[in-house]
Design a protein around this nucleic acid. Structure first.
Length: 464
DNA sequence: CAGCAGGGGGCGA
DNA sequence: CGCCCCCTGCTGG
């Protein structure tokens, strides 16, 4: 209440907790109960079992023993393993055929969320439908299993995963893999040391929701999870329905992902790969002389086709990208573009393709451009077209710069910090932040700026 | 309001 | 190709 009160919240609390629990189980740390089943022994934690099952809770209540051994008779090992995974991770993959069995076992053990509601009805008037029961808010915080069933067609994936479901390895990976944030945090880039941290923070935040859902609904994070909850079990058999929402989410994820992956590939792997070695541009302090031109030399002629090939080859890369780029405009592709470009003379499209052939041809077209040189485009007045989007320019240099925005290639590296950029000019400008130089001085006041436009803006606003 | 990065245009060597 | 210019947009004080 007091003014000074701050609310501190641990965004990843659930995920972390979950992860740690799983890890503890794997390492058999702090385990205080042994579950014996069909000749196998599982070291687990009373806390977890009793949290997830009234049955176990009761047992422990009535078993003062410090490290009891519980022998399960009517449960098979694979069922138990699945249930343990479920309890520790909040989700588990199950082959459809095994679903009934699993539920039965869950019922025997009274596993919350599987066989019994994970929370007493309480006052929640919200009629609990057999399925999701819980109202939205609850839903987020508690592990109510949803059974989701992918189409049969998924079986291969599903089967594979389900068969190996029990191992409860942590899936931090699913969060890390989102990697994309990088390029979007323009602001932080100059803050060298912080960049990584910050981006990861962002990631955490951005995945906040999925994390929240983690215990109960893994759908959001299931993609890369070792034990994807393909089939999240539900109390009711009627749940065997597809949940469009999840599908949509997934598909979106996929799209986003393709975009992201693309980006991350470029900014991470590729950068590191191509520019990593050059990170050391030891002597490029000179604002004007940026030796660091890392390896822009390789030339686009090399790079481009690669990029193109990559994009084409990628499962979703190009498509995702193109769809993101072209579709939104609603143009019918080149037509619309050339018109809008006002470059009628400029742009009698090299191939004059109508939209239909557009994408592939754009790629091919550019590739050809690169391969054959500008001469091939004489008819087009030497316009240069981006293979990734509808961008067209007269200048090859502009195109190169532009393409880097797609490939995320940033060959120009600051010697003072991790900042890297696509244009030498940007690097030069950036360097002012280190050198303190402010080349643009206001004649009317002591104000100085690092960028001309900043000075102009200053004059307009201050001395107008 | 200022700092700063992204990104594109344009020109001279 | 290298360099400069410009506009734009975001961010933080």
């Amino acid at each position: 209440m007091a003014e000074g009160m701050l609310s501190l919240s641990w965004n990843n609390h659930r995920a972390t907790f979950c992860h740690i629990l799983s890890t503890l189980r794997e390492k058999e740390r702090y385990t205080d109960v042994t579950v014996a089943c069909d000749g196998k022994f599982y070291q687990v934690h009373k806390l977890v079992l009793s949290t997830c099952s009234e049955y176990f809770e009761k047992i422990f209540e009535n078993t003062p023993c410090k490290h009891p051994v519980i022998v399960l008779k009517d449960v098979q090992t694979d069922e138990l393993e699945a249930l343990l995974s479920y309890m520790y991770e909040g989700a588990v993959s199950v082959a459809q055929n095994d679903l009934a069995r699993l539920i039965k076992a869950a019922e025997v053990l009274r596993i919350k969320g599987l066989a019994v509601p994970d929370e007493p009805p309480l006052s929640e008037s919200c009629s609990k439908r057999v399925t999701q029961s819980r109202n939205a808010s609850d839903d987020r915080s508690s592990p109510h299993p949803k059974r989701r069933r992918r189409e049969e067609s998924n079986t291969s994936l599903q089967g594979a995963q389900t068969s190996t479901s029990p191992p409860a390895s942590p899936r931090v990976s699913s969060f890390e893999s989102e990697g994309e944030t990088h390029h979007s945090t323009s602001r932080t880039q100059s803050d060298s040391r912080w960049m990584d941290q910050r981006s990861s923070e962002r990631e955490d935040q951005s995945t906040d929701h999925p994390l929240d859902d983690r215990l109960g609904d893994h759908t959001a994070t299931s993609r890369s999870s070792p034990t994807p909850p393909q089939v999240e079990v539900m109390v009711d058999e009627t749940l065997v329905k597809e949940e469009m929402v999840d599908h949509v989410d997934n598909s979106q994820d996929d799209i986003v992902d393709s975009g992201m992956d693309y980006g991350s590939m470029g900014s991470d792997s590729r950068l590191d790969g191509s520019g990593g070695g050059e990170e050391d541009p030891s002597s490029q302090m000179l604002p004007n002389k940026f030796e660091p031109k890392i390896n822009p030399s390789q030339g686009q002629a090399q790079q481009l086709p690669d990029a193109v090939v990559e994009a084409l080859a990628g499962p979703s890369g190009m498509q995702g990208w193109l769809s993101g780029c072209e579709m939104p405009t609603g143009f019918s592709g080149l037509e619309g573009y050339s018109g809008g470009d006002g470059s009628q003379d400029v742009h009698p499209p090299p191939q004059g393709q109508p939209v239909s052939q557009s994408q592939a041809h754009q790629l091919v077209g550019l590739e050809r451009t690169i391969a054959m040189g500008a001469g091939a485009l004489t008819a087009a007045r030497r316009t240069h077209r981006c293979p990734y989007c509808l961008y067209v320019t007269y200048y090859t240099t502009s195109l190169k710069k532009h393409i880097r925005t797609h490939t995320k290639e940033k060959p120009f590296v600051c010697s003072q910090c991790p900042f890297r950029t696509t244009q030498p000019e940007n690097l030069r400008r950036h360097f002012y932040t280190h050198s303190g130089e402010r080349p643009y001085a206001c004649e009317l006041c002591p104000f100085r700026a690092t960028q001309k436009f900043s000075l102009q803006r200053h004059i307009w606003t201050q001395h107008r």
